[in-house]
Amino acid sequence: MQSITYTVKAEAGIHARPAGLLVKQAASFKSNIKILNEESGKEADLKRLMAVMALGVKQGNSVVISAEGEDEEEAARVLEAFLKENF
């Protein structure tokens, strides 16, 4: 399993449009990918938009993305880069 931790810098947190792009990016991998909002302790499947939105990730919250499966290393690397560029 590969995991990364990222603190959200975007003023709006993880909101609808970029969250949809994040989910789409995650869906391109075969691995099982989860996202955890460390502040609330809630976890969701990163391939399900409504579940990600329900986490209510706000600016300053730290999230942990974990990927497990055959392409987990690539998934973690790509998703970390996506977070840095968009959130």
Score class of each variant (00 low, 15 high):
E80C: 09
V8K: 04
L21E: 15
L79T: 00
E38H: 11
G20E: 05
L22S: 05
E43V: 13
K42T: 02
E39C: 12
I35H: 02
Q59W: 10
T5C: 11
P18E: 06
A44W: 02
E74L: 07
A10T: 06
L22G: 04
G13Y: 05
N37Y: 01
S3A: 13
A12R: 15
S31Q: 03
K42H: 12
V57I: 15
I14T: 03
K24H: 13
A76R: 03
V8F: 07
T5M: 13
E85A: 14
S62V: 06
A54M: 14
S66F: 03
A10I: 05
L36G: 00
E85F: 08
E74D: 04
N86Q: 12
M50A: 15
R17S: 09
N86F: 09
G56T: 07
A26R: 03
Q25M: 15
V78G: 05
D71L: 02
A75I: 00
A67K: 00
Y6T: 06
A76C: 00
I35W: 01
G41C: 05
L36V: 08
G60H: 09
A75K: 00
V78Q: 08
E80I: 04
E70C: 04
A10Q: 12
L21H: 14
F87V: 03
L79Y: 03
S3K: 14
S3W: 13
R17T: 07
V57A: 06
E43F: 07
